[in-house]
Design a protein around this nucleic acid. Structure first.
Lengths: 329, 329
DNA sequence: GTGAAAGCGCTAACAC
DNA sequence: GTGTTAGCGCTTTCAC
């Protein structure tokens, strides 16, 4: 692979001039520009990005951290992010935390050693106070998560209200014994959901039964297990907020095979409005989230910051959601 | 952010010594090593990766190209790849081609401008002859695709045989009118499937009905549409090989709602054995593929090559698959 | 319009 | 065991 010196030598110009052509700077005579372009093509020369990045102190790369890519929600979010980044000429490094603090730290540390220009956190494993010092090294953005005080852009939707509305819907259907699933304790977004759930019940003077609350509810298999636990209880809920279409699908399938009628014996509401809602029997009532938009908006925001070198500031952008009623409630 | 010179200055040593400590080289006195480590910690110093990469001509980064991340197969494959890479201290850049040649080229071009140490192609959009020249710049590996002559490692499974067995299974169930779905014309892996399908039919003196062959079959919605087309035909197949669990789920759901009995009126076989096979009614017969393993093995292979700087050579590694019979056939 | 020279931050050959 | 020096390949200031 030739380098810029070689091109310069062959063209009998300085490497400055070659660099000017490479970067579309003005003030290069048409003649030389043409010659240089020709030689570049002939030698199949491509500038070394590493050297450029070192020199300019920019990498045109961002990193994202997600719990795990093989979850429909996060794979769609990643699609949105990756798409938008690509369109803007940015590369995306993907980090799966599997809910581990250290991997999140490793991701954010890329800022410090200059491997990326910014990072989008799609979940939050560490205390914000642990992460905040890294702001000195580059922009951090929260997507699909929430923190009440972090001085950074937060692209999310109102998890509190979405859950509130979902649970109200169950109550309107006549249910008073309602269960609740979530994934981890540490997420503030999940805490918001819990608040929405509690308020909806409280307003109707209904009680939160702690034994009907299930954590680590993530995929279809978790749905199977949750139903089994449920079915073994003396007193059972007649409706359940699952927080996930996959969990809903698992619960429904298991319920149906044990001859439950859904929604009569057990009403189930999903979350995210994935396509899977449309192929189960019965189909799944869910909350529709603009997932791609969440991703796109996040990239847009962080690139504004990177490109204009603005100070990152707190800004909470909530995207709309909607209740989509199907057969499972 | 301090740099290596600053650390050296404070410690009253040369930057070589600091570099030695940074890279765990021997021959540094315990005393100096300790001092240097202390100062590094105190100043919260982190070496600039870009400079290191430029100097060493290695990035510890690989890129993968996939058609689209929001497809369960590819998100699981990405998980396997990303996991293994992370464990080995490598970063992963993700490129979605959306079946476009140019994006695949852009991915592979990262080799040329030194941004990555190797690339794993999980689909193939360009002619191999277009891609082959890039081998001069670094290792390329094919995962989940096939090419009959490319001189590179190919990590795959026997798509021909898997399809053959799936179709034979349908025939054993008494079907003689069998449809076929696939995603794109250009994939050799898909061509292998078509061969397996054809052979299975041919061996039983059955005909391939071209009107029962559907391309662009990728997700649940495609399944809906394929069923609608099918249902509108004068002569209909009684069984269909879908090549995808999502497509199978879509076809089944649509069939059920039009009062078809699955598998009596229409038998449906999926592919990949995703969890979705277990939540539809009826559940979906499928071909199980070791997806994570496919990803892990690919990374293992390409890192062997990167780290030992071996010549890349043709090697076809086929992983096992299995037929998993459920209710839809 | 163009080029010389400095330098981004690091590693590694070599000398001592 | 340690330091000096060169240089990875580029961009950018400054002078002409």
């Amino acid at each position: 692979m030739p380098n810029i010196d070689e091109i310069a030598k062959i063209c009998k110009v300085s490497k400055t001039t070659v660099s000017r052509v490479l970067n579309n700077h003005p003030y290069v005579s048409e003649e030389k520009r043409k010659k240089i372009l020709d030689v570049i093509k002939e030698l199949d020369y491509s500038p070394n990005s590493l050297a450029r990045h070192l020199r300019t102190n920019k990498t045109r790369t961002i990193a994202i951290s997600i719990p795990s890519i093989d979850h429909p929600f996060f794979s769609q979010l990643t699609k949105g992010i990756s798409n938008q980044a690509f369109d803007q000429g940015y590369k995306v490094l993907i980090y799966q935390t599997f809910y581990k603090k250290e991997i999140e730290l490793e991701t954010i540390n890329l800022l410090k050693n200059k491997e990326i220009d910014g990072v989008i956190l799609c979940s939050l494993e560490n205390e914000w106070s642990t992460l905040e010092p890294y702001l000195a090294y580059g922009p951090i953005l929260l997507c699909n998560e929430y923190h009440e005080s972090a001085p950074i852009p937060i692209i999310c939707y109102d998890e509190f209200k979405a859950t509130y509305i979902a649970v109200k819907h169950l109550i309107q259907r006549g249910h008073t014994n309602i269960g609740f699933c979530f994934d981890t304790f540490y997420s503030q977004a999940q805490a918001e959901r819990m608040k929405g759930f509690s308020l909806a019940l409280k307003e109707e003077n209904l009680l939160v039964h702690t034994e009907w609350i299930f954590d680590r509810a993530f995929d279809i298999k978790d749905g199977f297990n949750i139903f089994k636990k449920l079915d073994g209880m003396a007193e059972k809920p007649t409706a359940i907020f699952t927080g996930s279409d996959q969990v809903a699908a698992g619960i429904i399938k298991e319920a149906i095979s044990r001859n439950y009628h859904v929604p009569k014996d057990l009403a189930v509401i999903g979350f995210d409005n994935q396509l899977i809602c449309q192929v189960t029997t019965p189909t799944i009532t869910s909350i529709g989230i603009p997932i791609f938009e969440l991703g796109r908006k996040s990239v847009q925001k962080i690139l504004e910051n990177i490109q204009h070198d603005e100070n990152i500031e707190r800004e909470v952008i909530q995207l709309p959601f909607e209740l989509i009623i199907r057969e499972s409630t």
